[in-house]
Structure formats: structure tokens, C-alpha cells
Write a protein that binds this DNA or RNA. Structure first.
Length: 250
DNA sequence: AACCAGGACGTGA
DNA sequence: TCACGTCATGGT
């Protein structure tokens, strides 16, 4: 008996196995990624990090972050700032904000808008991002340590599905899988979804075939980014050499 | 010197 | 719904 389902990936047998195998393969290749990066981690946490993979800001194998309210807000800010922007530019902006002592919502909200825009400049789109960052700060305080709903985040102008999921997954450790441009390129190249699949369809591919575990979601997403940086750059991309092609059917 | 980077939004078809 | 232009800085 044949089930008719719109999404092509559901027509393929064993998709759950494929999704989990990709994770195992990437983890074997690259190891834990230590997302979300934070601009300065406590010195005491150094020993608990696997030193050899450690890059500034990342904390591979350590899933206890964020530990403070300010770290939580730093992740939220980073998720917004990195929209269509490389992380190096986001780091500059985060350091600018830190210099203004503005990496906390209480300071950002009353901060002079022009000063905020100036700090955000390295990350681009500074006019929109400055407004949005203030609105995020306001929402964050209104929450009073409650976890926001996805709808609350999406209701803010400038917060789309990926940023909302990033905030929920990395700042609040909720099981919302993040789909970014890299992840899209990989799963379409592997023919796991149709090329014109929308955000929610790709999201469902992962959420529907993995344990609803935020640690797995975090690691998986970060691994996809690392992998894509090696095989799926827009220029000089070598998608035909992607090692995952060997373990995926077809 | 174009092209791209861990997107989102407004518009018109 | 969906394709397309726009937002903007700084790397390669």
C-alpha cells in the first residue's frame, strides 16, 4: 500500500536512518563544534574544554552554556546580527557593544539609537538591526526568564524563522532545528528534499527523524555549517566531492 | 573588483 | 504562495 505524502523525502524509505547516519558521519569527521560561540568564556571553564579543538569563543563538548542572563542575551543578539553576515563581522559588533557595556538588555534599551547603529555597522544592515535589537531587548526583559514562544519571536520585525529557531535552540535550549542556507544546500544536493522545499519542510526533515534533544539539534546544525564551509561554498564549491554522497541512497 | 557571508521583508504577479 | 529587489559592511 502506497502512502501519498506531499513531501518527497517521506516517500523514501529509511529516511530516519539516513538523517541519523549523516550526523554520525559528520561527528566522526569534525567532532563536537562547541556552538554557540561566546565572546569571553570564563577562565575556569577552560579545562573542561577539549583543548585541541578549542577556538576562541567556542566550547566543544560543553553544553552548559549559556550560564548567565547576559550570555543568553549575547546569543540572542548574535543570532540577529549574523543574518546574511559572516561571524567575524558579528564578533566585531559584539566587541563594540561590550565596549559600550551594552551587551545586556537594560543598557541597550535606553542607548542612543545612533550610537547603537554605529556599533552595529560592521555587521551590516545596521539601521534595521539596531531597531530589532532594541525590540529583542524589550521582549527579553518582559519574559522575566520565561521561554518565549516561536510566535512571539516571529512577531518582531526582523526576526524570521531561522533567527527565531536559533534563539530558541541556542539561547533557550529548546528543541527547534535551525535551517540555514548551508543546511539547505546540503540536503538538496543529497536529494533529501526538493530544491524548492520551504523552510518548514526542511525543518520537518530533521525534527521528524531525530530525538527531540536540543543538544543533538545544536551539534547537528553546527556540524552542517562546518561541513558546508568545506564542500558547499558558493565560489569554489565541490559538492560532487561531498563524502555524504557515499552514504546516502541514490 | 565583483562576489559573498550562519536572512528578512515588502512588493507585485 | 513565490520570485525578486532591497537592506549594508568588509573578506577574499
Amino acid at each position: 500500500m502506497i502512502k501519498y505524502i506531499h513531501n518527497t523525502y517521506l516517500e523514501k524509505p529509511g529516511i530516519e536512518h539516513v538523517v541519523r547516519m549523516i550526523y554520525d558521519c559528520l561527528f566522526d569527521l569534525y567532532g563536537p563544534q562547541g556552538w554557540w560561540p561566546l565572546i569571553d568564556l570564563h577562565e575556569t571553564s577552560w579545562e573542561t574544554h577539549s583543548k585541541k579543538n578549542y577556538t576562541k569563543g567556542y566550547h566543544p563538548g560543553n553544553y552548559k552554556y549559556p550560564q548567565t542572563s547576559d550570555q543568553q542575551f549575547e546569543i540572542i543578539a548574535g543570532a540577529l546580527l549574523t543574518q546574511n553576515t559572516s561571524w567575524i563581522q558579528v564578533e566585531k559588533t559584539l566587541l563594540n557593544l561590550k565596549q559600550l557595556d551594552a551587551l545586556s538588555p537594560e543598557i541597550i534599551i535606553p542607548l542612543n539609537l545612533e550610537a547603537l547603529k554605529e556599533a552595529i555597522k560592521p555587521a551590516g544592515y545596521y539601521n534595521q538591526k539596531a531597531i530589532c535589537l532594541k525590540n529583542l531587548a524589550i521582549l527579553f526583559l518582559e519574559l522575566k526568564h520565561r521561554v518565549p514562544t516561536r510566535e512571539e519571536l516571529l512577531s518582531l520585525k526582523g526576526i524570521g524563522p531561522e533567527t527565531a529557531d536559533s534563539i530558541l535552540l541556542y539561547a533557550f535550549k529548546q528543541p527547534f532545528f535551525v535551517i540555514d542556507a548551508y543546511t539547505r544546500r546540503i540536503v538538496t544536493n543529497l536529494r533529501l528534499v526538493d530544491e524548492k522545499a520551504n523552510y518548514d519542510e526542511i525543518k520537518a526533515l530533521f525534527e521528524g527523524n531525530l530525538p527531540h534533544n536540543p543538544v543533538i539539534y545544536q551539534e547537528y546544525h553546527a556540524l552542517m555549517v562546518e561541513h558546508a564551509k568545506r564542500y558547499y561554498r558558493k565560489k569554489v564549491s565541490c559538492t560532487t566531492k561531498c563524502p555524504l554522497l557515499k552514504i546516502v541512497p541514490d
